[in-house]
Design a protein around this nucleic acid. Sequence first.
DNA 1: GTCAATAATAAGTCATACTTTTTATTGACT
DNA 2: AGTCAATAAAAAGTATGACTTATTATTGAC
Lengths: 241, 241
Amino acid sequence: MPQRPSPHQYQTARPARSHTSRVVDDLGLKIVSGAQQQGSLLPGDGELIERYGVSRTVLREALKTLSAKGLLQAKARIGTRVRPRADWNLFDPDVLVWHARIGFAPEFLKHLGEMRMALEPEAAALAASRRTPGQLQGLEDWAGRMDNPDIGQQDFVDADLGLHLAVAEAANNPFFLSISTLIEVALVAMLTASSPVESAARLKASVAQHRAIVDAIAARDPDAARKAMQAVVQTGIDGAR
Amino acid sequence: MPQRPSPHQYQTARPARSHTSRVVDDLGLKIVSGAQQQGSLLPGDGELIERYGVSRTVLREALKTLSAKGLLQAKARIGTRVRPRADWNLFDPDVLVWHARIGFAPEFLKHLGEMRMALEPEAAALAASRRTPGQLQGLEDWAGRMDNPDIGQQDFVDADLGLHLAVAEAANNPFFLSISTLIEVALVAMLTASSPVESAARLKASVAQHRAIVDAIAARDPDAARKAMQAVVQTGIDGAR
DNA sequence: GTCAATAATAAGTCATACTTTTTATTGACT
DNA sequence: AGTCAATAAAAAGTATGACTTATTATTGAC
């Protein structure tokens, strides 16, 4: 049973409101949600052109975009099929946001948590050995923002997210940059799934956990950084139940 | 100094030799290789249409595909720019294969190794707790194939790759399926970078290491599986140095 | 019953004209 | 001189219609 979608505004939310992106968005959402099933054949151009009230040009460019993300495959004489989920590029920011928009099924939440547990602790460990002085300063700043006692709910989430993204960046490995949207979606998903109003005690504990990550990175201690991040991610997973 | 590209045939190698895919391929390679620099403006349609000898339709669909992968961004009145590498979807199979085709810079090899080290041990740990009987059988089969004393070079690589992909699949988490191409590219990269003819002793050691992974997964021992996979990946990284 | 010619279908391509968005320029007005 | 709004220009975006190619199913000869 999917949780309700969160009101969070994802970075990926494109202001590009062209006809093409409207069609991409709607079809992408239909596919990810299962309204257009895996392996199924899309309606022919004629029907889709009529459904969306666009030209063949727009429709084809939209299908090209979805094909590029692994969601569709066109074959002559057959038509355009929805590819099996195993072929989707789940790390694609759009695909991730579509998953977020349909609400988070517990199963999906679990899978997201497992990815965070694989990636973020390693990112923290790498950051500990490779962070630049400037990156460390950025991390300290984010930790400082979280530590503000009368911080609002939204600002806390932003600071939390900012810190995690800063860790990923400080790993100085471009692959960890590519998972920024995954971190964003996963973190927001877990915070959304947990109680909307966290107790002051829990907030304080969270701040301390995050501070431990930054301290370990400051001390250039990869193992401590990894452990500290594992604790944070585990807390997030537990909170989301 | 990039290593030479390997002769390996990647799964992603599309037989789709349409005009569009030719343009996508060529431009994608130019961008990834840096021949078309990050942040730079692409030539106007007129010039690209002439360069590739295609229609505007084909050119636009190619640009849409590259935009979908995060490589390009179009803005009215400005033109189409190559986005900074931080925005590329490095997990996209095509983007990965383009990286492979230009040869592996030591830096890129290091980053790939770090990703493997983050992902594969966790996949092995998850597989240990979640693998189905059928998946276990598949793993045993791959290990058996590697163990053949008079196996050829190519068949050994195939079995090696097959086993790693089977572990990722047995994690029963769709995100780990999405990194199949990453595993493939990284593994081939490391085998390519290491000595082309491995000694019999090293091959035997490799077989034993892989067997340990399968045994741990069979025994439903996540920690042992994680450790065994870490050893394998570390060996690959060391060999590539 | 096999196999090759062929018909049918949907994707792919081309050419052209037009619309919208965004930025730079121009020129009036304070 | 400096501000600001009207306007021009450039490039992306959209629309339309006709045509080509690839692939599969059908047909018919052997």
